[in-house]
C-alpha cells in the first residue's frame, strides 16, 4: 500500500508539473513515460474504486498530496478520486493548455497515418469522432418515443450515471462514496440546474431499485434538491417516476402540497396567486393532470387525495375558498 501511495504522490506531482513551464524540458521519452504513469493511475482507479477500504486510504493520500502541492504550486487544482480514472486525459488537457508544452505534443495526440506506432498511446482521433457523433445524434434527432420530453442527451447521460451508481452500490459500504459522486457532479455542473436535474431524472428512470431509492434519498437530503427537482422536471417525467417509485410519489405529493399552501386567492382578480415563486395554480393543475393520466392506480390515488384535501378544507363548492376545490373543478373531476 505504501508503494501505491508513493506512486500516486508521484503522479500528482507529475500532473502539477505539467501545468508549469518546467514542461519545456520534456522530451518524447519523458512524455511517453508520463503517459505510462497516468495509465497506471487509471488502472489503480478501476481496481479499487468499489473497494471501500483501499479507496479511503487512497483518498486520504490524495488529500495530503493535494494540500502539499497547493502550497508549492498556487495554481494547482486538487485531484479528486474519481478523476484518477482519466489521468491521461487530464495530462493531455494540461499539456494543451500550457503555452510551454513541447511542440511534438500535437503530433503525438493527433498522429498522421505514417506516425510510428508507439506514439499512438495517446491518440485522440477516435475520441473526437465518438464525442462528436454523440452530440451530432443528440442534437439532430427528435425522438417521438422519448421519455415524455426528456431530451436524448440528458437521458443517455443519466443512464450512464445510473449504471455507475448501480455498480458502486452493488458493493456494501459505498453509500458515502456514491453520495460524494452525486455531490461532485452537481457541484461541477455549476449553475446549470435544469440540465443537471434532467440527468438525475434520466438516472432515476433507468437505475436499479436500490439506486433509485438512493438517488431519491440524496435528493431529499440535499438542501432544496427535491423541491428544485420537482419544479424543473416536466410533469410527464415526474408522473412516470411517481408510477415507478412509491417513495418519490409521496415526496412529489409533498412538494405539490407545499406549493399549494403558498397560493393565495386574489379576490379582486378572482385568481390564485403565489407568494414565494413556487408553482402557480396552472402549473399545479398541469402536474395533477399528468398524475391522473398516468395509469389507473395513480389516477385513483390522486383523486382520493384531492377529495380528502377538499374535505379537510371544508368541502366547499364555491370558487376561491379552498385551492383544492378549485383544482378539482379545474381538472373537471
Amino acid at each position: 500500500m505504501e508503494a501505491v501511495l508513493r506512486h500516486l504522490n508521484n503522479i500528482l506531482e507529475l500532473l502539477a508539473v505539467s501545468r508549469t513551464d518546467r514542461v519545456r524540458e520534456w522530451d518524447r521519452p519523458t512524455t511517453q513515460r508520463a503517459f505510462k504513469w497516468a495509465e497506471y493511475c487509471e488502472q489503480l482507479h478501476s481496481r479499487y474504486q468499489s473497494n471501500p477500504t483501499v479507496r479511503s486510504s487512497l483518498e486520504s493520500g490524495l488529500t495530503d498530496t493535494n494540500r502539499r502541492l497547493k502550497e508549492t504550486f498556487p495554481s494547482y487544482s486538487p485531484v479528486e478520486f474519481s478523476e484518477l480514472a482519466q489521468c491521461q486525459h487530464k495530462l493531455i488537457v494540461y499539456l494543451l493548455r500550457n503555452p510551454s508544452s513541447p511542440h511534438f505534443i500535437i503530433e503525438m495526440l493527433f498522429p498522421d497515418q505514417n506516425s510510428p506506432s508507439q506514439e499512438l498511446l495517446a491518440a485522440q482521433n477516435s475520441l473526437v469522432t465518438r464525442k462528436s457523433a454523440f452530440s451530432l445524434l443528440c442534437c439532430t434527432v427528435n425522438r417521438t418515443s422519448s421519455y415524455y420530453g426528456l431530451q436524448t442527451e440528458p437521458e443517455v447521460r443519466g443512464k450512464l450515471l445510473g449504471k455507475l451508481l448501480n455498480s458502486i452500490l452493488a458493493r456494501p459500504g459505498n453509500e458515502e462514496h456514491a453520495k460524494c459522486l452525486l455531490d461532485s457532479v452537481r457541484c461541477n455542473s455549476a449553475g446549470k440546474v435544469d440540465g443537471f436535474y434532467d440527468v438525475i431524472a434520466g438516472a432515476l428512470l433507468c437505475s436499479s431499485d436500490e439506486s433509485q431509492r438512493f438517488i431519491i434519498t440524496w435528493l431529499k437530503e440535499s438542501d432544496g434538491g427535491l423541491n428544485t427537482f420537482c419544479s424543473v422536471i416536466s410533469p410527464e417525467v415526474c408522473a412516470v417516476i411517481s408510477r415507478q417509485s412509491p417513495e418519490f410519489r409521496k415526496l412529489y405529493w409533498g412538494a405539490l402540497k407545499q406549493w399549494a399552501s403558498c397560493l393565495e386567492y386574489d379576490v379582486i382578480e378572482s385568481v390564485w396567486v403565489t407568494s414565494e415563486g413556487a408553482g402557480s395554480f396552472d402549473v399545479l393543475a398541469d402536474r395533477l393532470r399528468d398524475l391522473i393520466n398516468s395509469g389507473e392506480s395513480l389516477k385513483e390515488e390522486t383523486e382520493t387525495a384531492l377529495k380528502a384535501l377538499t374535505l379537510q378544507d371544508g368541502d366547499f363548492s364555491v370558487k376561491g375558498v379552498s385551492v383544492w376545490t378549485d383544482l378539482t373543478l379545474q381538472l373537471k373531476l
Binding site: 478501476s46 480514472a85 482519466q86 450512464l160 458502486i168 461532485s184 457532479v185 455542473s189
Partner: peptide, 19 residues
Amino acid sequence: GSVAHATVKHAGSTPMRYH
C-alpha cells in the same frame, strides 16, 4: 462548468470509454 463536463469528469472511466 457544463453538465456534460461534470458527468464525464465523474464517470469513473476514461472519456473515450464514456463517449
